[in-house]
């Protein structure tokens, strides 16, 4: 399967994504430079974490204006698979490819640590390798992961089952103490209504090898491989 990893100036998880997809999962990966509009025939576009354009003004606000994002938006509209991780999630929100917005973490501090996530659905291209209700461990590392959406938006998200990952405790319970950043309904990962675009704050690429403490994140990428294989 051919993945494209977008590189914005200030992206800093692009090489981590490339390494997991290419070296751990043995897939073809090409970089997609922010000023190019060609997606180079990729079957899945990855928007990596980092601080695109310094995250100045507002996270993801400038990135959405780049030439590559116009192509990503069109690709997504045609049903192409897009996954945005951390800053990538923030960019997807700014670009309107996912509903809602991000506020600063309630602690007003950057938070880097492992969290537990509950997998809410397994009938998606991003989660088909998990069990429903499975608790997985992945790290978060962000300043702005406090997801918010208006009441109508939340109603639609809930009705469509768009929340794919929620912060939870080790037993899978969604509690206030298990929610690291104040995110609405403990949403950690969210897909669009069509189910082909995922944004998630946790970093699956940082949890794809046992030597790093968890390989749970690999399931996200392996789900994509399965989804494409059975398409």
């Amino acid at each position: 399967m051919k993945f494209g990893v977008v590189v914005f100036p200030g992206s800093n998880c692009d090489q981590d994504c490339v390494q997991v997809l290419r070296d751990v999962l043995g897939q073809e990966v090409v970089p997609l430079w922010h000023q190019d509009s060609s997606l180079r025939g990729c079957e899945c576009v990855v928007l990596p974490g980092g601080f695109s354009y310094g995250d100045y003004l507002r996270t993801g606000a400038i990135a959405k204006l780049s030439p590559v994002m116009k192509s990503v938006a069109a690709f997504a509209k045609d049903g192409g698979l897009v996954i945005g991780i951390c800053n990538g999630f923030q960019i997807l929100l700014e670009a309107g490819l996912l509903p809602g917005a991000m506020l600063r973490n309630t602690s007003l501090r950057f938070i880097c640590r492992y969290v537990n996530l509950r997998v809410e659905r397994t009938d998606t291209p991003f989660t088909n390798r998990f069990q429903a209700g499975q608790v997985v461990r992945m790290p978060i590392a962000h300043n702005e992961g406090n997801y918010i959406v208006d009441a109508a938006g939340l109603k639609r998200i809930t009705a469509q089952g768009q929340a794919l990952f929620r912060y939870c405790d080790a037993d899978g319970q969604v509690t206030n103490t298990a929610n690291p950043n104040g995110s609405l309904e403990a949403i950690a990962g969210l897909c669009n209504e069509a189910g082909n675009v995922l944004g998630m704050m946790p970093h699956p690429e940082r949890a794809s090898e046992p030597a790093l403490g968890s390989a749970d994140g690999r399931g996200v990428f392996e789900s994509l491989l399965s989804a494409v294989a059975y398409r």
């Binding site: 998880c13 974490g49 938070i111 880097c112 970093h203 940082r206 090898e209």
Partner: peptide, 19 residues
Amino acid sequence: KAAVYEQYDHMVQTNTAVL
């Protein structure tokens, strides 16, 4: 010192073998 080092991204570049 978790209250301090959790404010630092200590995992980017995916080389951190021990937290």
